[in-house]
Design a binder for these strands. Structure first.
Lengths: 227, 227
DNA sequence: CGGGTTCTTGACTATCTTCAACGAAAGTGG
DNA sequence: CCACTTTCGTTGAAGATAGTCAAGAACCCG
């Protein structure tokens, strides 16, 4: 999952559409804390996230970290480059994953439809990452946090009548490393949104979106709408 | 071209390797200033850059801009998502391009090897973008500019004995929008590198790398090595 | 050569980070 | 299950980095 800015050009359904009858399910389960793979590992399989949440990270030698993305249901993780993984990947929330062989990505010989679907997922990934660039490079801290919450609310929020509830299974440090901020700044931004009554913080890992429209406006820099 | 941090795991040859005998060349030429496509256009063809430089950009409604990447020889541009282009693309330096049909990317029926090559290019693109995230999210202005120059020197620099010469056909604003900075900050960072005798600025669009090792060190935050 | 754009530099400001302290939450072992 | 310890999150104050605004210099183009 990246923070992508919805545009009119294209439909917002930005993630993997599993084909219903892909034969017998061969899903596997991973517990929170488990690692799927490390940077430099040879890629054996890709995974479609069916449930749970994954975390993909990349490290700089001096310890600086970037969370590349969070893997939510509908996402495909593990695309190889030169046959290798280029991130670490671990599990934040117990997950069920559908593995696909690397061969299925690289050749359509066995299952042309799957090949096609995986290729499309890779191309969507590129597009989503481009959007994410815009956010990392050009948005303020407040806008980044608002964007992040908006995307989560849209993709995995629970509808509660007027509000939406989202779970934040990742730490503040994860959010910070995802958005290119510090934990303190993330915390302050959340507090700010809370004080503006745009969100309510039920507990550390649960946020209620009180005014989705205001949050969306903030995420594009219309700070006027907050009032 | 993205700003990727070389890691020991994988070979540094990170771009498209054209197969020598891909039949008759059907290259096309574009003049500086020409647009290849706009965001929202249907993707007809991908292009392999043979010579020249392209610029891929994405805009926010309020005018903020992100330069997604620069297209240098060896790069493939124009990967579709849902069949559409998700950036604008124009020409900075007169370019020769090898077009490939979108069909060649999406199916291996006609030319399995080309299909394979294009898929690999897409996967490399994902990996390179992940590196770029780390730079956008976690590097200081000085590190970003140093990284940018290092990558350019490595990929398209001219060897001049002890030094390397690079051409910067793009404006300072382009560099800024690529690195998530302002033109002023880019300018100041270059001045700083010049004063530290790491680079020399031959003219606005030509930079000499006097101490490549120091530049590389700076790009990873070892500011000690500058002295 | 002249006019407009781009680049550089300076002074000032804003935003975000850093450092530090405290409180809340979660994990551990008796 | 509770006390203890450690980690995580929030808040404040101070500082640094990058942005903004403004002016002049360099460059480009007709």
């Amino acid at each position: 999952m990246y923070v992508t800015i919805p545009t009119d050009h294209y439909a917002p359904s930005y993630h993997f559409k599993p084909r219903v009858s892909r034969g017998k399910s061969t899903e596997v389960s991973f517990k929170a804390g488990a690692y799927l793979y490390f940077e430099g590992d040879a890629v054996e399989r890709l995974y479609e996230v069916k449930s749970g949440v994954l975390r993909l990270t990349r490290l700089l030698e001096d310890g600086r970290r970037q969370v590349i993305s969070f893997g939510y249901p509908g996402d495909i993780v593990g695309f190889p480059a030169s046959g290798l993984h280029h991130t670490d990947c671990d599990v934040l929330v117990d997950a069920r994953l559908q593995p696909y062989s690397r061969a299925a990505l690289e050749s359509g010989a066995n299952d042309p439809q799957l090949h096609q679907d995986l290729l499309e997922a890779a191309l969507r990934e590129i597009s989503a990452m481009q959007d994410h660039f815009l956010m990392l490079g050009r948005k303020s801290a407040a806008e980044k946090v608002a964007s992040f919450l908006s995307v989560l609310a849209e993709r995995v929020g629970d509808d509660m009548g007027n509000y939406r509830k989202i779970s934040l299974p990742m730490s503040r440090a994860d959010i910070a490393d995802f958005l290119g901020l510090t934990t303190e700044t993330v915390s302050r931004s959340l507090t700010q949104l809370r004080k503006a009554k745009v969100i309510a913080i039920e507990n550390i890992h649960t946020v209620i979106i009180l005014r989705p429209q205001a949050l969306l406006a903030l995420s594009d820099g219309h700070q006027d709408m907050v009032a």
